[in-house]
Design a protein around this nucleic acid. Structure first.
Length: 768
DNA sequence: ATGCGCCAAGTTTTT
DNA sequence: CTTGGCGCAT
């Protein structure tokens, strides 16, 4: 019993030992929050509470995974449900789909799907889009859904012009979603919230089922999420929430700070615990953070303190331009690594916008520093992956209109925009899905016989694919590739300029399918595979196992920590951002954003700004961020850096850093970059690809690998050949795709696993 | 039906 | 400076 309480402060212990009734944990940055939450779960279990009555809700899969790991080590194999809000709702919705007008095989539209659907709805609603855009409309609708505002409610009192348009589109969009048997991300929450509100019986049942609910990052919940946890905590109000109002940075997405600020009001019997001691940062860093955040008015004051030893002052640097900023930071890191002061993995660079990472990439690459950019170029957003997934979606849910539109003419089969438009009109008129409309294309007067025949051929292809719907996902994907001749299509349309091989991504999807089948020998359904993919995101796969400098936005940095942190572009109109200066609330959120960035730093922190920055291609003078004026000068060291163009050339950096990067999977893609010219932006436009799908090997490149990679030599391998892989052993080549340096071999190993490799790097040995 | 070229716009994005 | 969307021309 003592092991889960030992080493805790009085406040932490108080939270861990709390069993029944509402609990509010106000946890400052670096206060050991995750530890307290996991220990509390274990404590609940030790009090004899059945594990299935406990639910822990997080915002990211990564946070859930970490929690699961830590609980697992303390209390192995307890079926406590831990996962994201959206996944939790997706599960409930599978069960209660009919109650909200869906079938249980409903599809989840991702952001791109829903954008397509909104576009279509805008057209169908016949509204003038002259003063707005589908994107804006999508935003308004999303915000409305987050606030539990239905189409009907919105129609009653729309205020602004763009809301008027959105109010007209909203019901059309929603009807289309229902026809498609689909939900968007917001609907996952909205449907569940509605279900719980309108069905007292179900609500009571679920309330009793999930008696102990823990919510992480409560400051980022929106009204829908609030309504859900509230509804599940009426008969059994054992709701415990953890958060920090000062780290709320998603207000623009509908997060409502009032949820946490008013928690004590909502649950008068609440026990409030403040975790104010910081175990992460030096006192200097913490004082800077504290001084900054004191300038916010809407907050709950916390007395941040630490017993950590005094550290270096926080550096404040001014550079002449962004290239100088990037070079100097890269130099600092390179020097520190060479001197053995730190490893690349200890360093992180944060910025307000993804666009600012360009010069950093260049600077890091020139110094052969391995780095990793956490951004949004997601694997499953690639065209070829979306195409294949669209086929799978359509097989799983014949009403998935967005999927049908995507692939009805991919690979090209002579069905043009006109025909699709006519199908759409017919579908809209009869309120049927596009596939149903396609089935009766021959009966639609506006569609010429020729086109109708092509549509019929597509429907026949679709029906053929559906035969494999219940096979393993791998079989289905392979069959799909075969029947649609998709690989041949990619090869035909291959773009010589583009270095990222779509074929390799296709192979990766196959690998993901194989992996999924392996992990779900019993319960693996297509539906689950698709749900799994729909609810993973790019930041989930930030790899902390690799020794690389991390570059990311301030938003992405939340929840992480690094010994050395650099925050760049602390400039007016950038932080706070020009578009976030309309109200005091927005400015306060920007201030919190900087606060989050600062409090990621453990040992060293540097804030920097430039005198000039290139914005949209033109050089502009820059004003330092007003936030800098709010920081305590006594904890800081101000440095005016002057740019010396020859500086870099004088340095003698090694060709590559011997950091023991041991991963041949990393090497697979190294050739993509090593052949590119230093100035080539396209090379860095495809940054580190991390794990795109569950249990997939990281597809990443490091600068070290790039520098070290030899020119690839391609041996003659053919399908059917028996080969030896240095890591995976003996296997047989299933197929070879691509030519020359980019040639990929898909190999089925003797243990049943199938993997794809760059032939040039995999070091395969032919076997007799 | 596809491909090229011009024009406009350009935060952050847990799911 | 980039990227993406749309329109026109083949």
């Amino acid at each position: 019993m003592d092991d889960i309480l030992s080493g805790l402060t009085a406040a932490q212990r108080e939270a861990v030992e709390h069993v029944n009734g509402p609990l509010l944990m106000l946890a400052g940055p670096g206060s050991g929050k995750t530890r307290v939450v996991t220990h509390r779960i274990v404590n609940l279990l030790r009090h004899g509470i059945p594990p299935w009555q406990i639910v822990a809700l997080t915002f990211t899969n990564k946070a859930a995974d970490e929690m699961r790991m830590r609980v697992q080590s303390l209390a192995p194999d307890q079926p406590v449900w831990m996962g994201t809000f959206h996944r939790f709702c997706a599960r409930l919705l599978r069960r209660y789909a009919p109650q909200v007008g869906l079938s249980e095989n409903y599809s989840i539209y991702d952001a791109a799907d829903s954008r397509q659907a909104i576009k279509r709805a805008c057209e169908a609603a016949h509204v003038s889009m002259s003063h707005t855009s589908p994107d804006q409309v999508a935003n308004v609708i999303s915000r409305a859904k987050n606030r539990l505002i239905t189409a009907e409610m919105m129609a009653e009192n729309p205020v602004r012009h763009n809301e008027q348009v959105a109010a007209r589109v909203y019901p059309v969009y929603q009807r289309q979603l229902m026809t498609a048997n689909a939900v968007d991300f917001d609907d996952l929450l909205l449907h569940v919230a509605t279900l719980l509100r309108d069905n007292e019986e179900i609500r009571a049942e679920l309330d009793a089922r999930y008696r102990y609910i823990l919510v992480d990052e409560y400051q980022d919940t929106n009204l829908a999420q609030y309504a859900i946890v509230r509804a599940l905590s009426i008969d059994y109000p054992n709701l415990s929430v953890t958060g920090d109002p000062d780290q709320s940075i998603y207000g623009w997405r509908g997060a409502d700070l009032n949820n946490i600020l008013d928690f004590e009001h909502d649950y008068p019997s609440v026990k409030t615990v403040r975790l104010e001691q910081n175990y992460r940062s030096t006192p200097n860093i913490l004082r800077v953070a504290d001084q900054l955040i004191r300038h916010n008015r809407r907050r709950k004051h916390k007395q941040l303190f630490t017993e950590n030893p005094e550290g270096e002052p926080v550096d404040l640097k001014c550079y002449t331009d962004s290239a100088g900023e990037a070079d100097d930071i890269a130099d600092q890191i390179a020097t520190a690594v060479m001197n053995g002061e730190c490893q690349p993995r200890d360093c992180a660079i944060f910025c307000r916008m993804n666009a600012l990472t360009r010069s950093l990439e260049h600077a890091l690459r020139r110094r052969s520093l391995p780095y990793q950019i956490v951004n949004g170029t997601e694997f499953y957003q690639r065209k070829e992956i979306k195409d294949l997934l669209a086929y799978l979606h359509l097989i799983n849910n014949p009403s998935h209109d967005v999927a049908l539109q995507r692939i009805i003419n991919v690979p090209p089969r002579g069905i043009g925009a006109k025909t699709i438009e006519r199908l759409r009109q017919a579908a809209d008129e009869e309120n049927i899905s596009l596939l149903e409309a396609s089935r009766k294309a021959g009966l639609i007067a506006s569609i010429p016989k020729r086109s109708a025949a092509k549509v019929a051929a597509f429907v026949a292809l679709y029906d053929a694919l559906c035969v494999k719907a219940t096979a393993t996902v791998e079989d289905l994907v392979l069959y799909l590739l075969e029947e649609t001749q998709y690989r041949e299509y990619l090869q035909r349309t291959a773009d010589e300029e583009q270095d990222n091989s779509p074929l390799a991504n296709v192979d990766e999807l196959v690998t993901a399918a194989v992996e999924f089948d392996r992990q779900h020998p019993e319960d693996g359904s297509l539906e689950e595979f698709l749900e799994l993919i729909a609810l993973v995101s790019s930041t989930d796969d930030w790899e902390d196992n690799n020794d690389r400098v991390t570059v990311m936005t301030l938003h992405a940095s939340k929840g992480l920590e690094f010994p050395r942190v650099f925050i760049i572009g602390v400039e007016d109109d950038l932080l706070p951002h020009a578009r976030s200066k309309e109200s005091e609330d927005q400015i306060e959120e920007e201030r919190r954003l900087l606060f989050v960035g600062i409090t990621r730093a453990q040992q060293r922190l540097q804030l920097s700004y430039c005198q000039c920055r290139t914005v949209h291609g033109e050089f502009r003078p820059v004003i330092p961020s007003p936030f800098l004026m709010e920081l305590p000068r006594e904890d800081m060291r101000q440095i005016e850096a002057t740019r010396d163009d020859d500086y870099f050339e004088d340095q003698d950096y090694p060709e590559s850093w011997d950091l023991g990067v041991d991963d041949d999977l990393v090497q697979e893609d190294a050739d993509d970059l090593c052949q590119l010219d230093d100035e080539d932006r396209a090379a860095i436009a495809m940054p580190s690809r991390q794990r795109p799908l569950p249990a997939l090997p990281p597809m990443v490149k490091t600068a070290a690998q790039m520098a070290a990679s030899p020119q690839p030599v391609t041996a003659n391998f053919t399908a059917g050949m028996a080969v030896l892989h240095p890591r995976y052993g003996e296997g047989t080549i299933v197929s070879i795709t691509g030519r020359g340096a980019k040639s990929m071999a898909t190999i089925r190993f003797d243990d049943g696993k199938t993997k794809s490799f760059r032939v040039a790097f995999a070091d395969l040995q032919p076997l007799e």
